[in-house]
């Protein structure tokens, strides 16, 4: 597992991906952050977290697109299959390498706290829960990306497919706003990731939100595992 993790991390930092995704994330989220700070003059990060979650909808697919697509295209998946590495360990190494990249991005965003502390007196509760929320949401995105990447050997298709699934999961609660669909409002509201993000940003650690996000992460991870298992043993 550790060897796969090392290999993937090496790939991120060898290729331009890390050097593009991390600065783009920090620059754009920083831009929105300073914008709202300047106009609202409130020492909070709630808008920033919201923007980060949307930004990650677009950036995580870039991180995850090559995880399995590239291995399938170049035939190296066969190589990994012939090595003494189980499918579970292989996926875990890949998953954790992407999570590490996410962690680096979020750590970088801690710099936003500097102006908040310097010029104001922020309430740290919602900030830490907000970070917990965005981290859980990010890992959930990564898991979805890993799964979609297992389905195709084309990286572009993997990225677009992941984006489509994530956007659907983010915005699905708006389906409930159609009058004819009012009666199914509640389930859509629950499966929509944006609903859960709201709680974290408000400083709430909602148990059901954590369980939901972890379940979703586990579900996509399991699907990716199933996909490789069928490919190999099916």
């Amino acid at each position: 597992m550790l060897n796969i993790y090392r290999k993937e991390l090496f790939n991120y930092f060898w290729s331009p991906i890390a050097y593009i995704v991390i600065p783009v994330f920090l620059f754009i989220s920083g831009y929105f952050f300073s914008f709202s700070l300047y106009y609202l003059k409130v020492a909070t990060m709630s808008n920033a977290f919201h923007n980060m979650a949307i930004l990650l909808l677009l950036l995580v697919p870039v991180i995850t697109m090559r995880l399995l697509s590239e291995e399938q295209k170049s035939g190296t998946l066969e190589l990994l299959f012939s090595m003494p590495v189980s499918i579970g360990n292989m996926l875990l190494g890949k998953f954790l390498s992407a999570v590490t990249l996410l962690g680096i991005m979020l750590l970088g965003s801690l710099i936003f706290l500097v102006p908040l502390i310097t010029f104001g007196d922020p309430d740290f509760g919602p900030i830490w829960t907000g970070y917990l929320g965005i981290f859980l949401i990010g890992t959930c995105y990564i898991s979805a990306g890993l799964f979609v990447s297992s389905l195709t050997e084309n990286q572009i298709v993997a990225a677009l497919g992941t984006t489509a699934i994530l956007i659907l999961l983010w915005f699905i609660r708006y389906i409930g706003s159609f009058e004819a669909l009012q009666f199914i409002n509640l389930p859509f509201e629950f499966i929509s990731i944006s609903t859960h993000q709201g709680d974290f940003v408000r400083g709430l650690i909602n148990f059901s939100s954590i369980v939901y996000l972890l379940t979703l992460t586990g579900l996509f991870y399991g699907l990716a595992w199933l996909r490789l298992h069928i490919r190999r043993y099916g």
Binding site: F10, W14, S15, S74, T76, E78, L79
Partner: peptide, 10 residues
């Protein structure tokens, strides 16, 4: 394998 499984970037 028939096509050597290589990581081109390494």
């Amino acid at each position: 394998p028939e096509v050597p499984p290589l990581y081109e970037y390494m």
